[in-house]
């Protein structure tokens, strides 16, 4: 498997003790399985304290993609990394709610800065 192939669909970036995953809109099922592998490995290898899942590039999130995001968050949490989903667009938020996917168990933040603030433990500005 080439390096390029491994990064397909979702680059993982390290920011201090936090990891940032940007999910692209061309993720197929295979790429998702790979992403779950890579993310969990990275978390344990770097002993990450926080994970930020950036979905701001997604125009469409159906129940499958919603479950995938929820699963990523759950896996990270089990590995003891606090997980925040950022960048849900207004239209995507409304559509997810209509689909009954409120992702109640996942922490959310408006953008990367906010998520970093949350992970740094200071919600105030």
């Amino acid at each position: 498997m080439s390096r390029h192939g491994a990064d397909r669909g979702a680059p993982i970036l390290a920011l201090g003790r936090n990891l940032v995953v940007s999910i692209r809109d061309d993720l197929d099922d295979q790429a998702i399985v790979e992403l779950q592998d890579r993310l969990t490995e990275e978390i344990s290898r770097r002993r990450a304290e926080g994970v930020i899942i950036d979905v701001s590039r997604l125009d469409v999130v159906d129940t499958f993609a919603g479950r995938m995001i929820g699963a990523l968050a759950k896996m990270s949490r089990i590995l003891d990394a606090r997980t925040v989903v950022v960048g849900v667009r207004p239209a995507v938020a409304m559509t997810l709610v209509e689909l009954g996917m409120t992702l109640g168990e996942v922490e959310t933040a408006l953008n990367l800065d906010r998520a970093l603030e949350i992970l740094a433990g200071s919600k105030s500005r």
Binding site: V88, R89, P90, A93, M94, V97, L103, A115
Partner: peptide, 11 residues
């Protein structure tokens, strides 16, 4: 629903 969507966006 509105409250749920607001929360999804991080507010």
């Amino acid at each position: 629903k509105t409250a749920a969507a607001i929360r999804l966006m991080g507010a």
